[in-house]
Amino acid sequence: MSYLLHLLVSRGDLCHGHFLLVLSQQSPLLRTLSSGVQISRSLQECYRLLQLPDEGGSSPAQVKEAYLRLAKLYHPDSGAPTADAELFARVEEAYRAVLAHQSRAKQPDRGTEVEDENSRGTALAHRHYLSPEGVGSGTPFQRERQYRQIRVDRAAEKVLNYRQREHERAAAAEGALAERDLRQRSQKIKITQAVERLVEDLIQESMARGDFRNLSGAGKPLRKFEHNPFADPMTHNLNRILIDNGYQPPWVITQRDLRETTAQIRNRLLEGRARLGDPMTPKERSQWAQLCASVQEELVKLNKMVDNYNLIVPMLSMQMVHFSLSREIDRAVKGAYQHRLDQQRAREKERERRKEEKKRANALTKPNNYRQGLTSWMKNLLRLKL
Rank of each mutant, 00 (worst) to 15 (best):
Q51V: 14
Q372F: 05
H322A: 10
R48E: 08
R151A: 06
E200T: 11
H128V: 11
R383Q: 12
T82S: 14
M320H: 06
Q338W: 06
H236A: 12
H236N: 04
A97I: 15
E113I: 00
G136R: 07
K188D: 02
Q149T: 09
S119E: 13
L364M: 09
L386E: 12
H18N: 10
L384V: 10
Q338Y: 06
V295N: 02
A274L: 15
R197C: 00
R351T: 07
E200M: 10
P229G: 04
D342I: 06
S27H: 08
E115S: 03
E348K: 11
L276D: 01
R180K: 11
R31D: 06
D330Q: 13
R110W: 14
Q107P: 00
I191S: 12
A293D: 14
R180P: 00
L364C: 01
N380V: 04
K188N: 02
G56K: 03
D13R: 12
P132V: 14
R154W: 07
P367T: 07
A361L: 13
H167N: 05
G246I: 08
V306Y: 02
G36H: 08
P314S: 02
E297H: 03
R183E: 15
N214A: 12
K334V: 01
R96M: 03
N228Y: 03
R41H: 08
L73C: 07
E352T: 08
G272P: 01
E117R: 15
V295I: 12
Y95C: 08
F212G: 02
A83F: 00
Q149A: 12
A80E: 12
V114C: 03
Q187P: 00
Q44F: 01
A85T: 04
Y95P: 01
T122E: 09
Y47I: 00
D330H: 12
Y309N: 05
F88H: 15
K224N: 13
R165W: 13
K224T: 15
A361D: 04
T254W: 00
R148W: 00
L68I: 05
S324Y: 05
W377V: 10
K188C: 08
F323Q: 14
L182N: 12
Q25R: 14
I312H: 02
L238G: 02
E200Q: 14
D330A: 13
S186Q: 15
S119D: 07
S206L: 15
K334H: 07
R90F: 13
A293C: 03
D153Y: 07
R353Y: 04
Q62N: 06
M320N: 02
L73G: 02
C46P: 04
E55S: 14
V300I: 10
R360G: 11
L160T: 11
K366A: 13
P279E: 08
N368T: 15
N237R: 14
K334F: 02
R120M: 09
R120F: 11
V37H: 03
I39T: 13
L43P: 02
L364K: 11
N308W: 00
L33S: 01
R213C: 04
Q146K: 09
A361M: 08
D13E: 12
A155Q: 14
F141Q: 11
H75F: 03
E93S: 11
